[in-house]
């Protein structure tokens, strides 16, 4: 028996919003530690890793490890039926082929449950090595979303260049070129609004704007986003979900071939 109860359905709703554009279906792996999801997009350019710790739930019970393959579109439709302040409970029997979402209004006057069929999905878990990244940039998530949105108008790709002066986002296209430079914040009044750069060595990588824009769907989950880069490894875009976990996006860079 699996049962996980969240006091606010809004967190789960935001999580779904953050991944449903990138993934159509995914497997939620539930164990004693919590719920984890790892999946690549269809083109295998990006990877999503979601962790919701068990201690972040109001009530969490997982008698046996269970993997629930879900259609994220269907799941999103169900979660849209929940109010933001509703309590959501995810229930599944061991070896069951369905999962049930129960939404309870704050005053308990309204209780609704939705049952969704589970899917058998091929598990393709990738081993993500622990990496010491050359650059780590923390900036307001809204700022990052704005940068991605603005630069995607100029070209399909964005160059993120981190130096000791700061971080530069640039794009070039038919209409011209765009450069956005962020310097490290001098005085940190509010940690959430700060731009913090930790750099061991300069890194410049090129990424597809489209995917970055998908990642920014998670902006509402966290006020800050952390970008981790090293040469010739995927970019990590991490949103920490307060009190419960995080969602990490991995994006493979575009690498210029030596021949050209």
């Amino acid at each position: 028996m699996f049962e996980a109860r969240l006091l606010r359905s809004s967190i789960l709703k935001k999580v779904l919003e953050a991944i449903k554009d990138l993934l159509t279906q995914a497997t939620f792996d539930c164990d004693d530690n919590g719920i984890q999801l790892q999946a690549m997009d269809n083109s295998h350019v990006s990877l999503v890793s979601l962790t919701l710790r068990s201690d972040g739930f109001d009530k969490y019970r997982c008698d046996r490890n269970i993997s629930m393959g879900m259609n994220l579109g269907s799941m999103s439709k169900i979660l849209k039926c929940a109010g933001d302040k509703d309590t959501v409970t995810i229930k599944a029997q061991d070896n069951a082929d369905t999962v049930t979402f129960v939404f309870e209004s704050p005053n308990q006057e309204k209780v609704s449950d939705y049952e969704m069929k589970l899917m058998n999905l091929d598990l393709e878990h990738l081993g993500i090595p622990e990496t010491e990244y050359s650059c780590t940039i923390r900036l307001p998530s809204a700022e990052f979303a704005r940068i991605c949105r603005d630069l995607s108008q100029f070209g399909e790709s964005m160059v993120i260049s981190c130096t000791k002066e700061g971080v530069k986002f640039s794009a070039t296209g038919d209409i011209g070129s765009a450069n956005i430079k962020l310097a490290q914040t001098a005085s940190i009044d509010k940690e959430e609004e700060a731009v913090v750069i930790e750099m061991e060595e300069p890194v410049t990588l090129t990424f597809a704007c489209q995917y970055l824009n998908y990642f920014t769907k998670a902006t509402s989950l966290s006020p800050q986003v952390q970008l981790s880069m090293s040469a010739d490894v995927p970019l990590v875009v991490e949103y920490r979900i307060p009190d419960i976990g995080h969602i990490r996006y991995y994006l493979a860079p575009k690498i210029e071939e030596e021949d050209s």
Partner: peptide, 14 residues
């Protein structure tokens, strides 16, 4: 745009 030159790698290669 030098940006466009790069070949998009896949996650599997990493």
């Amino acid at each position: 745009s030098p940006t466009q030159k790069g070949n998009q790698k896949t996650i599997n290669s990493f």
